[in-house]
């Protein structure tokens, strides 16, 4: 299945802003993070379809996953 990973702030370094990932059926957010070589400690905000998610969340084809490192406030 095809997943759109949107990366922000320092997570873009060496990975890009938007990464289209092809994952096996039943894959979770953790599998996506592994595929992108993002260690869990660098993930502060994790959204699937704009809603909070955890690493064990199973993904569906077409899901948009937004990943932020610890960032800021305003």
């Amino acid at each position: 299945m095809r997943i759109e990973a949107r990366l922000f702030a320092t997570l873009r370094t060496g990975r890009g802003k938007v990464v289209e990932a092809e994952l096996a059926e039943g894959a979770t957010v953790q599998d996506l993070a592994d595929a992108l070589a993002i260690p869990p400690a660098e993930i502060a905000i994790l959204l699937v379809g704009g809603r909070d998610a955890r690493l064990d969340r199973p993904l569906s084809d077409g899901d948009v996953v937004s990943i932020f490192p610890p960032v800021g406030g305003g």
């Binding site: 922000f8 702030a9 320092t10 905000i45 959204l47 704009g50 932020f68 610890p70 960032v71 800021g72």
Partner: peptide, 25 residues
Amino acid sequence: ENGVTGTGLPTYGTAVLVNIINENG
């Protein structure tokens, strides 16, 4: 040691929120 005050705000300033708030709709 805090990710927000130690890394995020120093690197990007408050403007880093643009994408965070937008992605949350």
